[in-house]
């Protein structure tokens, strides 16, 4: 489809936010590689990390079609201030309960977003959404299983899950907070109504928590725009970008 310059700019912003969410979460998940509680979960989470990073590439490739930007340059040579991920996803990996809860919250949000995005008027976005949505079904099974097991496990697992909820909740609504250009994209049939995506995600999260015997906390006011980050993102990028920055001319690595 042919996009007006305004719609094109708005879609670039939205695709960047979607890609950055996936890449930052994928990197945090990858930090468990070699450290997960058991070998099988180590492999399972490494798979999920790769899937999320793969989704980031889908969105960065879609952005490349619009503005010719280089996905590698965006991933490996962009400073923290230019990232548009939600704060929740850059928080340190924490313990297994926090990792699984954060993954669950993002999986629910992504599932609700992708379900609607498959009907996007922008064919390349709809196609990428269909591809990513398939993997999210499995991700949600995995993180949903852990949510129930941690909630209904031991006193320690339930305590850890409640601490994880306290930590994650203030950041939750930022996942679906609309960007400045989203309304125009929704008007053009390219992006679903993000407020509606958020309401659906929240309802699903609440149902899962209640079903696990947990009291869903009140959803706080929005923590601000996606252009604001903590020092955690700076530390993550130093780690993630160090090899690429050490040898920017590398042709094989």
């Amino acid at each position: 489809m042919t996009l007006s310059p305004e719609l094109r700019a708005a879609l670039v912003e939205r695709l960047t936010a979607m890609a950055d969410d996936e890449l930052v979460l994928g990197h945090r998940d990858s930090e468990w590689t070699g450290h997960a509680p058991i070998l099988e979960e180590d492999i399972a989470l490494a798979n999920i990390a790769q899937d999320e990073i793969g989704h980031a590439l889908l969105w960065l490739e879609a952005r490349r079609e619009l503005d010719g930007s280089d996905p590698d340059a965006l991933a490996y040579r962009r400073s923290a201030g230019a990232w548009r991920n939600a704060r929740l996803l850059e928080l340190p990996k924490g313990d297994w309960a926090f990792t699984m809860l954060r993954q669950f919250l993002f999986d629910v949000f992504e599932t609700e977003l992708l379900a609607r995005l498959q009907a996007s008027a922008c064919a390349s976005v709809a196609e990428a959404a269909a591809k990513a949505a398939k993997e999210e079904v499995f991700h949600l099974r995995h993180s949903g299983l852990w949510l129930r097991r941690l909630a209904g496990g031991t006193e320690e697992s339930a305590t850890r899950l409640r601490s994880a909820m306290d930590r994650a909740w203030p950041y939750l609504p930022q996942l679906w907070q609309p960007l400045a250009g989203d309304a125009a994209l929704t008007e053009a049939g390219i992006l679903p109504d993000m407020a509606e995506v958020g309401a659906a995600a929240l309802e699903r999260v609440r149902a899962a928590l209640t079903g696990s015997g947990l009291e869903p906390p009140e959803v706080p006011p929005n923590p601000g725009g996606r252009d604001r980050h903590g020092e955690d993102l700076v530390a993550l990028l130093i780690d993630m970008q160090s090899v690429a920055r050490a040898d920017p001319e590398a042709t094989a690595w």
Partner: peptide
């Protein structure tokens, strides 16, 4: 290794 049958299936798929 897994905690129960449902968990075992998810681990089996991943591994």
């Amino acid at each position: 290794h897994a905690a129960d049958a449902e968990h075992a299936l998810l681990m089996a798929r991943s591994v």
